[in-house]
């Protein structure tokens, strides 16, 4: 893992309250760039961005953009953030391949913990697909 990540938030260019809170929350982990939908897809395809956060208030088709990002980079984590969560939208986003569906909390610690938890996850997979090596397993040769 690199020491500092670059995260992408798909939101309006003008930074409102929540993106500011999110930027502060993520600052110990890395820097955050705010990009439009197309630029976010481009960034995901061409740079080692580990995680893209979609602001559900701005992104019109959350499931569509999630699928597009995942097609471009299957190992990418997508997190959907919303101030008005519903189970239908949660289902839609997670079914499209999002790694989490979170509330737009103003609590920096809560936000950071949620994003950190996602960074430790393996990329989402199909129901019975076997995953590869997840956490670095112990080397049987070293016997630890």
């Amino acid at each position: 893992m690199p020491e500092k990540w670059t995260f992408v938030l798909v939101s309006e260019e003008q930074e409102t309250l929540w993106p500011q809170v999110l930027r502060r929350a993520l600052s110990p982990l890395g820097e955050m760039r705010i990009l439009s939908e197309d630029k976010a897809v481009q960034a995901a395809a061409t740079s080692p961005v580990p995680l893209v956060i979609l602001d559900a208030a701005v992104v019109r088709d959350v499931a569509g953009l999630t699928s597009r990002l995942k097609r471009e980079r299957p190992d990418l984590h997508v997190v959907v953030a919303t101030a008005s969560p519903t189970w239908r939208r949660a289902r839609q986003a997670l079914q499209a391949g999002a790694s989490d569906y979170i509330r737009k909390s103003l609590d920096e610690e809560e936000l950071r913990a949620q994003i950190e938890a996602v960074l430790h996850l393996p990329p989402p997979r199909a129901p019975n697909e076997k995953e590869g090596i997840r956490d670095e397993p112990s080397d049987p040769f070293r016997g630890q």
Binding site: A90, A98, H120, P127, D135
Partner: peptide
Amino acid sequence: HQTAREAMKPRPEGLPAAVDY
């Protein structure tokens, strides 16, 4: 949305608990 999230978000084991809700 909480139970939908709990059921369908991927877990450290690699797979979500459920594929649909």
